[in-house]
Design a protein around this nucleic acid. Structure first.
Lengths: 124, 124
DNA sequence: AAACAACCCGGAGTGGACTCCGGGTCAAGC
DNA sequence: GCTTGACCCGGAGTCCACTCCGGGTTGTTT
């Protein structure tokens, strides 16, 4: 029998708050989750995978509108494979750039810390 | 003679919009900039250095309130040297973590791209 | 069976970081 | 001397990504 998760568990495992997960489903970032007869959500493995993907994209700074576009492409099926791949590749490049910029800035910050270490305290 | 810059130039060189630079000065993130007799801002080398620092901190995700705290410490003079250094060190660690998380996520994205490359197209 | 926690919903509210508005003031070019 | 464009200001508006609200159901626990 397939493992299932309560809203809370799904939230914990994905690192989003339960509210945020609901919100994501509302705006169509997450495909509609199965419900019990009384209307409560039942998350399955696949839903958690979606959430993990969202977490990954979100944490790397993809805006919600873009994620929606990507999700829509997935829903549109196999015909959009190429396009989805391109989106991911473009995003990967952006993330790469972001990492490089961060490393650069980190270097600057560390230089500043060094100035502090050797007492050259003054000026920005 | 010390080089000076118009608001526009200062904006261009710092990568902020002129509006944002004004905004930063308003909220005290940037120390009051010199003015001409008629009230126009005249940016000097030092101001650009401030702006560069702000850019660095901002781009590495430091929230504005924290930058304000840091700026305040600088204004409070030499007695806060230690404290400022600690703030920077703490921030450097956060940036380091951020970079690591990004690298991890980038790995996941690239894995996904590879799945696409080899036609294993389906599921999140 | 009473209490409690977790869940449901749509809609309103929040916080952060700008960005725009309208109206007024200069400085430079034609 | 007049138009044009950059600049000034405080206050209001915008955008994004949530987060909270109030009120109503369920399911479990004691």
């Amino acid at each position: 029998m397939p493992t299932t998760y309560s809203p809370q568990e799904a939230a914990e495992r994905s690192g989003f708050s339960p509210e945020t997960v609901r919100y994501y489903e509302r705006i169509g970032l997450l495909p509609p989750v199965r419900r019990t007869s009384s209307g409560r959500r039942v998350f399955e493995e696949l839903d958690l995978k979606w959430l993990a993907l969202l977490r990954c994209l979100r944490d790397t700074g993809m805006p919600i509108t873009e994620m929606q576009a990507f999700i829509d492409l997935m829903r549109d099926g196999a015909g959009t494979r190429q396009e989805r791949q391109e989106v991911l590749v473009a995003h990967a490049h952006r993330v790469q750039d972001q990492i490089e910029r961060l490393q650069l800035h980190l270097g600057q910050i560390n230089a500043k810390i060094d100035q502090y270490r050797r007492g050259k305290v003054w000026n920005p």
